[in-house]
Design a protein around this nucleic acid. Sequence first.
DNA 1: ACACTGTGAGTTTTT
DNA 2: CTCACAGTGT
Length: 725
Amino acid sequence: MNLEGLNPEQKQAVTQVDGPLLVLAGAGSGKTRVLTHRIAYLIEEKDICPWNILALTFTNKAAREMRERVDGLVLRGADAVWIFTFHGFCARLLSREGGHLGFEKALTIFDDADTQSLIGRIIRDLELNDRVYTKRMLAGIFSDAKNNALSPAAYLQETGQPRQVLDAFALYQKRLRQCNAADFDDLLHLTLKLFAENPEVLAAYQEKFQYILVDEYQDTNLIQYRILELLAQRHRNLFVVGDDDQSIYGWRGADIRNILEFEKDFPGAGVIRLERNYRSTAAILKAANAVIENNTGRKGKTLRAHKGGGKPVSVHEAEDERAEAIYICNQIANAVRAGARYDAFAILYRTHVQSRILEMYLQGYSIPYRVYGGISFFARAEVKDVLAYLRLIYNSSDNEAFLRIVNVPKRAIGPAAIAALTASAERRDLPLLAAAMEPDDLPPAFAAKFKKFTALLEEAFVGFATRKLSDFTSELLLAIGYDAYLREYESERYESRTETVQELIGYMQEFEQNYEEGDPAVLQDFLTNVALFSNTDQMDEKQGVVSLMTLHAAKGLEFSRLFLCGLEDGLFPSERSRYDRDKLEEERRLCYVGFTRAMDELTLTYARRRMMYGRISDCMPSMFLKEARFQIPDSRFQTPIPFNGTSRAPSPTYTAAGASPRPTPPVVRETDFTVGEKVRHKVFGLGQVISLDGSGTTRLVQIRFSDGQIKKFAAAYAPIDRVES
DNA sequence: ACACTGTGAGTTTTT
DNA sequence: CTCACAGTGT
């Protein structure tokens, strides 16, 4: 096998295949090259069976790339190597071995939106104070708990969480189980549990994976570490690549300790440093090195430039964020006039909100751009709607999916009906769909609605087994009248929504090509694939446009000419990290990541004043500028390119479903009831008026229903009719 | 049932 | 400022 193109350190990292090995790979030092060559080397030179090799990454994109590149290096077998994201690997394992944990079939994976809505209902059901206990906060705590190797409940107890949090967590877990579902953290947590409780299962995989390779090791969390530790125990061939200086996901549970203590955790481990940088100019690396040197507790590593000196890194001070945007636009427009391509440029920022003003001016200057991040394709309302129907077919216990589509398209099934159904399901210990199919214990009006709904589903689900998934889905949408729904309630966005649905069907068609027709695994695999798909996975570089993204999203990418904007104290580093050393160091690593994305030119900008939260605040330059040893210059003026002034603030492309339903005029009804009169409520059935209050449209009517329930309604709006006796 | 209003909060988000 | 969401009024 040809290893000619590798430098000595890379070559060693590729060929030293036995025992634990840590490769500290600086930015732009060719780590993907090392990983892929090592896999190829194992197959071609060491005669290792591809299926005895496991390679783990964090993103689908990285996994895909790795497989493609390995495929280009070996004669055969690239598709047999186990190349997965951590979560994808765990999902696969659980789907194969979940029986040992008592799962009858593969779990449905809940994404963040599912999780959030589940937690929202828990807050309501437990009557928690939603000022104190927000969805976001609870989701964070639950995630933290699961990413700790202790049992989550024990961890919560230990960290002194109040009873409300413990209760909420218990209920959260209970409901996930009821739905036969797992959240992202569960995938990891349950895998560890599987291994811990089933030594024979563990032993089989320990035996299988003779060689394990891990990308971005600095981003692993404690659970991932434990899984690796177990898997590598037998053969001890654990190869990890990472860069402690690029650890920027600590706030999401990544434990930098894993990489810092690798040699202690795996005695006898070798360490190789890749410090030759093939990406950036010396000038850029000098600034990057100068910044990162201010961190403590590093493995220690200094990037050496392979390229020549390059243009000095420049700093620009702008009056405010608009002037900053104008400056950047001018720079780009001038460079393009001088022959540069738009796609040579990228603009990075600390927070998404900063993109708004940049977009506005880019539009004004007619500079084509694309913002990365934001709402993922699979998070769009219409996509989630369609997927919810499919999820319900695959897993009829998926209450989250049920709740999403029970009234989409609109079927006049409102909160009251859903509350009644939920209560009934709880009583009978049934999933919502099953309860809806036998709604006899519900008020007749509700029962009728649910019967109609489930009959429709049953009809729409016919033929699932005999058709291609894409064809089936098209017919399903027709059967439920989804298109008509979009036309009626999303009329302004109808075009874009139907386009998205078509795109989804197209994606499905592509997906099912990898399967024999009629293979029943398609749906499960499709749903897993979709759940584990993220917005960064579609980050195929768009040609001919400027890229905008957060610093986090930029990790792993490179751009010829880079702008890093908003280098102000309190914005970057962020206000919240300023007085916490660990957090500040993570911000500094983020800065380092940012600088090292630039290949040829790096421009740093900051504003003296910035509008934030509707307030104009004075800003100080970021401490990172000082650390990079810049003299802050006076603002310089460029020859301005006329601003054509036609821009307006970009409107968000997508909003949640039902965000803009067509207003329907309220139906004003008869308010002229008398006490004692018999009435029928559309939903609650027969009853008797027991009191009246107010007049006209504010008239309230109190009714005692036949089951003894007493309710109050706005007489003019409630669906109540007089019953002649 | 539905629309409107008022309030409060507001980084980063590989799966 | 600007979004999301719970509460309120018709």
